[in-house]
Amino acid sequence: MAQSRRRVEHEPAFVLHSYPYKETSLIIEAFSRRQGRTALLAKGARRPRSAMRGVLHAFQPLRLSWTGSGELNTLVGAEWEGGMPFLRGFGLMCGFYVNELILRLLPRDDAHEALFDAYAGSLARLGRGEPTAGVLRGFEKRLLAELGYAMLLDRDAASGAPIDPAMHYLYDPERGPLPVNGGAGGEMVVRGSTLLDLDRDEFASAETLHQSRGLMRALIGQRLHGQTLHTRSVLLELQDL
């Protein structure tokens, strides 16, 4: 039963979240390129003079080294990779949201290299101040695909016919778009043009922005089995300020 202690060296990784642990330590929820999501114990990282303190910063590319192979590994090194703009303002809130999606939906210890790269790319775009909606929809789509729910966006799921931009479709989470009459029916009913725009990551149209946001929220809501996201409720509260 005793697994051999593994040592992971200089692994590209991001801090998703951290929690205080005992008097002076931190538990880091990290997302690494080749090891996936991992919990790491950073001993003494809350001490005033800890060298790790200024490094273990979310949304910044790091190189982490750790040992152990259990539920909780021990962080032994953290280096600053750099080159990523710092997230600010609303972009920072979007970063928290993306981190919560990963924390809630991605199982631990499963490598997702493509998703890791998409995550790093999304943070860079948020940091450069690109319109957030396009960045978020792109990442959500990527995440669903990595979880095994890749979206069908260019063909009608029933007939296989190409999506007609002028028609309306009900997006069935299991199958994909099914043609319906008229646009009523909630967030899962969208116009064909929205599906095609989402497929090509084009978010210039106001209707696409609006409909794709609702559709992705509904699909992600299904994966969360009705749990609400903390970041979403905090954002709603902030809008009332």
């Binding site: 979240h17 809130m93 981190n99 970041t231 409720s233 905090v234 954002l235 509260e237 902030l238 300020l241």
Partner: peptide
């Protein structure tokens, strides 16, 4: 504010 922990503006008396 700590969005990931669900700590919002009401919790910090904004």
């Amino acid at each position: 504010l700590s969005p990931l922990d669900g700590v919002g503006p009401r919790d910090i008396g904004l």
